[in-house]
Design a protein around this nucleic acid. Structure first.
Length: 103
DNA sequence: CAGATGACCGCAG
DNA sequence: TCTGCGGCCATCT
């Protein structure tokens, strides 16, 4: 498995996140079979070509915090029905995508 | 080639 | 809430 195949797997997972749900970098790393690659998931998404039109705004960190410096992200999520806690973090209990429970 | 850096994670103070 | 520390890994200086 080369590095760019890992990148493709990441993109596939992100593309599969349903509207109104979010997923964390760590979980995506787990799904690709590389539990320690959370940082690489972040890199892959930071450099993802816009023409792929991935819903990368639905990826947040493990605390539900949004991407530093990306001002449109919160609005995009709110438009999909994602609500935030008082501290500004996503309400993970409600909006984290639990893919296991969909089978 | 050695450090620094980053869309990370968890724990601690 | 913010800061620091150790661990992690590829990329940039």
């Amino acid at each position: 498995m080369g590095k760019e195949s890992f990148q493709k797997e990441v993109y596939a997972v992100v593309a599969a996140i349903p509207v109104g749900k979010v997923m964390t970098y760590g979980h995506i790393a787990d799904l690709t079979g590389h539990p320690q690659y959370s940082r690489r998931v972040g890199q892959a998404l930071h450099h993802v070509p816009a023409e792929l039109h991935l819903p990368s705004h639905r990826v947040v960190n493990a605390q539900g915090r949004l991407v530093p410096g990306w001002k449109a992200q919160r609005e995009l999520l709110e438009k999909e029905g994602v609500r935030f806690k008082k501290n500004g973090c996503v309400d993970m209990q409600t909006f984290l995508w639990k893919f296991m429970e969909e089978l």
